[in-house]
Simulated assay, not measured.
Amino acid sequence: MRFIDAGVEYQGFWGSFWDLIWWFLWAFIFVSYLFALFAIISDLFHDTKLSGGWKAVWIFFLIFFPIITALVYLIARGKGMGDRQVAAAQQYKAAQDDYIKSVAGTSPADQIAQAKSLLDSGAISHAEFETLKAKALS
Score class of each variant (00 low, 15 high):
Ala88Tyr: 06
Trp22Ile: 15
Asp83Leu: 15
Tyr73Cys: 02
Ala39Val: 04
Arg84Ser: 07
Phe38Tyr: 11
Ala36Ile: 13
Ile75Ser: 06
Asp120Ile: 07
Trp58Arg: 05
Tyr33Ser: 14
Gly82Leu: 12
Ala123Leu: 11
Lys116Asn: 09
Ile59Thr: 03
Gly15Gln: 03
Leu118Tyr: 06
Ala56Met: 10
Lys49Ser: 12
Leu34Thr: 09
Ile75Tyr: 08
Leu44Ser: 02
Asp98Ser: 15
Pro66Gln: 01
Leu118Gly: 00
Glu128His: 04
Leu74Thr: 01
Ile68Met: 11
Ser121Thr: 05
Leu62Phe: 00
Thr48Asn: 13
Leu25Gly: 10
Leu71Ser: 04
His126Thr: 15
Phe61Cys: 10
Leu62Pro: 00
Gly80Pro: 08
Asp19Trp: 05
Asp110Arg: 04
Tyr73Ile: 03
Ile75Trp: 09
Leu132Thr: 02
Gly53Leu: 08
Leu71Asn: 05
Phe13Glu: 08
Ala56Ile: 07
Phe64Asp: 02
Lys133Glu: 05
Ser121Gln: 06
Arg84Glu: 01
Ile59Met: 12
Asp110Ile: 09
Gly105Trp: 03
His126Lys: 13
Phe38Arg: 12
Tyr33Thr: 12
Gly53Val: 10
Lys55Gln: 01
Ala123Ile: 14
Ile67His: 03
Gly78His: 01
Gly52Glu: 07
Ser16Trp: 06
Phe60Val: 06
Phe28Ser: 12
Met81Phe: 08
Gln90Cys: 09
Leu118His: 02
Gly53Met: 12
Ala134His: 11
Tyr73Arg: 02
Lys133Tyr: 04
Lys49Gln: 13
Ile63Asn: 00
Ile29Ser: 05
Phe17Gly: 13
Ser121Cys: 07
Phe24Cys: 12
Phe35Val: 15
Ile29Pro: 00
Leu37His: 10
Trp18Asp: 03
Leu119Ile: 04
Ala36Asn: 07
